[in-house]
């Protein structure tokens, strides 16, 4: 039996909205470590790994680890029936062929119950090695979203260059070229706006903007984003979910053969 009650139902709504364009379906694994998902996009270029730890929920009960095969589009349709301030309870029997979702309003006078039919999904799990990255950029998530949106007008690729001075995003295409440089600026009033760089070594990598823009749909979940880069390894883009979880995206770089 799996049962998890999320007092901030909006977290689950935003989480599913943020990944539904990248992956169409996946196995949500429930275990004593929480509710997790690892799934690749259909072209196997990008991967999302998310975790909501048990302390995201109250209560959280999972007697035995099991996968919940879910169509993201279907789950998204059902979660759109929940209000942002609803409490959401997820429940599944073991073995699970359905996921029950209960939405309770804060006034405690309206209860909605939905049932999602689960799927059998053969999912391929990738082993992601622990990596010490050459460059780590902590920045405002809305600034990152804005940069992706702006440079997408020019090209389908963006180069990210991290040095001691700061981080520069640049793109070039048929209409011309553009670049946006952010300097380290820890002395700003709002903590969300600061750009902080941890640098072992200068890095310059090129990525598809289309995927970065899809990752940026996670912006409503967290005011900050972290970009982790090393030469010739996939980019890690991380959004933390309060202190109770994360959404991590990996994107393979474009490299010379």
């Amino acid at each position: 039996m799996f049962e998890a009650r999320l007092s901030q139902g909006a977290v689950l709504k935003k989480l599913i909205e943020s990944i539904r364009d990248l992956v169409s379906e996946g196995n949500f694994d429930c275990s004593e470590n929480g509710l997790s998902l690892q799934a690749m996009d259909s072209s196997h270029v990008a991967l999302v790994a998310m975790l909501l730890r048990p302390d995201a929920f109250d209560p959280y009960r999972c007697d035995r680890s099991m996968p919940l095969g879910i169509s993201l589009k279907s789950l998204s349709s059902i979660l759109r029936c929940a209000s942002n301030d609803d409490v959401i309870t997820l429940r599944a029997e073991d073995p699970a062929d359905q996921l029950s979702l209960v939405f309770e309003n804060p006034q405690n006078d309206k209860v909605s119950e939905y049932v999602l039919n689960l799927m059998d999904i053969d999912s391929e799990h990738l082993g992601i090695p622990e990596t010490v990255y050459d460059a780590v950029v902590h920045m405002s998530s809305s600034e990152f979203q804005r940069i992706c949106r702006d440079l997408q007008q020019l090209s389908d690729s963006v180069s990210i260059d991290v040095s001691k001075e700061g981080v520069r995003f640049s793109a070039a295409g048929e209409v011309g070229s553009g670049s946006i440089a952010l300097r380290q600026n820890t002395n700003v009033d709002s903590g969300d706006e600061a750009t902080v760089i941890e640098l072992q070594q200068q890095v310059n990598l090129t990525f598809s903007i289309k995927y970065l823009s899809m990752f940026a749909k996670t912006t409503p979940l967290c005011g900050r984003v972290t970009l982790c880069m090393s030469s010739d390894v996939p980019l890690l883009v991380e959004y933390k979910i309060d202190e109770v979880g994360y959404v991590r995206y990996y994107l393979a770089p474009k490299i010379e053969e």
């Binding site: 990008a46 991967l47 990738l126 390894v233 990996y250 490299i255």
Partner: peptide, 14 residues
């Protein structure tokens, strides 16, 4: 030119 790699080129199946 630059080529888009797949993730499996970097990460191994579990």
């Amino acid at each position: 030119g630059l080529n888009q790699k797949r993730l499996a080129w970097f990460f191994f199946p579990k």
